[in-house]
């Protein structure tokens, strides 16, 4: 593949801006392709998005819209075929494994997935799981024990769970441990991919409250979900992905309250609320007809 595609999109503006207002995440013209050469398709195309310090950006879209690919590309788990990803001023687009490990050690970015069993080692107790990232970074045992307890409290869990394995926790507790593990290294940005989708109402609200507290502490969040309600509840801004492209980005109130793109209107109007029925088949078909083929 030729090299000139790497410069696709406007150049990153990280050099001239103030560090205080510099975005924690800056995605420019991101493109991810997959499949064999003949039938290569775009998972993401021309995606540009920035996340300011302390900002929560929600990403909505349906199965196959590229939400998770975006998260994985930002985390270096899939390779971009064009465009750039800049994390806290550092262009990570071409980073290899060693550079990523260094970045993670610096505590720039962490992640939480839908299934906490994927982010937690099943053979490690809660205490070991939370302490491991700190011990790896050379934090003393005493200080690690102190911080593990502090972060456990931050996700509203009690210390009697420290000796448990992930399999011995409830789904809600497990997801809170996964959040705590993402937090112990005090990252500036946390990527959350469907973090509340497997939880019941009470646990969902509890996780969302914890995330709000994090945001108030200045942590930036990227919250990816198919559940519009959760995203509306927590995001400052919302970006809408449709077939790998961002079709609308704006303040949460605007995107949910006054959606402009037909796809956003289709999403928002398909969801019932306590007071209103969703759009009927005819209205949904009319909105669908407005979408690019």
């Amino acid at each position: 593949m030729s090299n000139d595609t790497a410069g696709f999109g406007p150049a990153p503006e990280t050099t001239g801006s103030e560090p205080a207002t510099r975005p924690v995440l800056e995605v420019r013209g991101l493109e991810v392709r997959y499949g064999p050469r003949r039938r290569r398709r775009h998972a993401l195309r021309g995606v540009s998005l920035s996340v300011a310090p302390g900002e929560t950006v929600g990403i909505i879209g349906e199965t196959g819209s590229g939400k998770s690919t975006l998260a994985r590309a930002v985390l270096g788990l899939v390779r971009a075929s064009a465009g750039s990803v800049v994390l806290d001023g550092e262009d990570v687009t071409a980073h290899g494994g060693r550079q990523w490990r260094a970045l993670r050690r610096r505590g720039v970015v962490q992640y939480v997935f839908q299934d906490p069993l994927r982010s937690l080692d099943p053979d490690l107790t809660v205490e070991a799981s939370l302490g491991e990232p700190l011990l790896v970074r050379g934090v003393s045992r005493a200080e690690t024990a102190r911080r593990v307890r502090a972060f456990l409290a931050r996700v509203h869990l009690t210390e009697d769970l420290l000796g448990r394995l992930p399999g011995e926790l409830s789904g809600g507790q497990r997801q809170r441990v996964a959040v705590a593990r993402a937090l112990v290294t005090e990252p500036r940005l946390v990527i959350l991919d469907e973090p509340v989708s497997a939880l019941d109402a009470a646990n969902r609200v509890q996780i969302l409250r914890i995330l709000e507290e994090l945001r108030d502490d200045g942590v930036s969040l990227v919250f990816i979900s198919h559940d519009l309600g959760s995203v509306a509840g927590i995001a400052d801004r919302i970006a809408v992905l449709y077939r790998g492209e961002l079709v609308e980005t704006g303040a949460a109130r605007e995107v949910i309250g006054r959606p402009r793109h037909p796809y956003t209107r289709l999403l928002v109007r398909s969801a019932p609320t306590l007071r209103s029925a969703p759009a009927d088949r005819a209205e949904r078909a009319a909105l669908r007809a407005l979408l690019p083929a």
Partner: peptide
């Protein structure tokens, strides 16, 4: 339950008039 639903749901930004 209803208060939580309205705080963390679409109701936060959607009013019946807009719908």
């Amino acid at each position: 339950l209803i208060a939580e639903h309205e705080q963390y749901g679409l109701e936060k930004f959607r009013t019946p008039e807009e719908d």
